[in-house]
Amino acid sequence: MFPARYWREMPQRYRLEAGKCKRCGKVCFPPRLVCPKCGNRTFDTVRLADEGVLKTYTVIRVAPSQFTGQSPYAVGIVELDGGVLITTQVVDILLDEIKLGQRVRVEFRRVQEDGSAGIICYGYKCVPAA
């Protein structure tokens, strides 16, 4: 990943910062320029909850090159408390132990790195809660 793109996405990747529409209140994650619900262009910055429920997941067995060392791994859709859905890796759990509806917690992890000489990209992943 190019340093500039990674840098631009830091607020959402590091702190789960979302945009809350000033007109209709819809929370967009990742943040958007235009509210998909009402077309408004002004947002407040809000931070999403750091816990939620795993709604669905899939197991990636043939991974893109920068993730091959991690495969097989689970990518799920998590509904964070407050209702926003995020797509995220689910880690620190055996693949056959993952259960739909289980509580998960957001943790800060390495997401990918640009070889051994490039930048390390950090972001969120989910782990089993408690």
Binding site: D50, G69, Q70, V91, D92, E107, F108, R109, R110, V111, I120, Y122, K125
Partner: peptide, 16 residues
């Protein structure tokens, strides 16, 4: 530590 953990990730979690 697993493949996706290092001094930075653990520091962030402890700090949180």
């Amino acid at each position: 530590p697993s493949l996706d953990q290092d001094t930075i990730t653990m520091s962030v979690e402890a700090a949180r």
